[in-house]
Amino acid sequence: MAVSRRVVLRFPRSLVDQPIVSKLIRDYNLDFNILKASVSPREEGLLVLELMGQSKDFDKAMAYLTEAGVVTQPLSRDIRRNEQRCTDCGACVVMCPTGAFEVDEVTRKVLFEDTKCIACELCLLTCPPRAMELTF
């Protein structure tokens, strides 16, 4: 069965410069999109990937990552914006750690790019009209 899943990968410092992802893609026949990549001040790596491939390959790939010492976490929760409730104020722009919100320079409307969202949930309670919603 073909699947497409979003996963959060946390790399301890010792693994940051290892070719783990290239091995993952090569050996398990997965396609991927990088949704977010960053290295924290403590030099831990954070990678959010969308992985596409066969279900059994995906499971094997996750097992490989765990064994290699990468902490994996499915991005099963999804953050959506209720477009009816969003007032385009912009309060969320400074709250989001991944820069998923951007103000259009011309219209000043607040654009939400959900592929950048890692479902950290920080915007949920800080959006004044509560336009950001969590779905499972």
Partner: peptide
């Protein structure tokens, strides 16, 4: 310092 608005310019317009 990053800035954020609480009042909506598009809706004011």
């Amino acid at each position: 310092i990053p800035t954020a608005a609480l009042s909506s310019y598009p809706r004011a317009l």
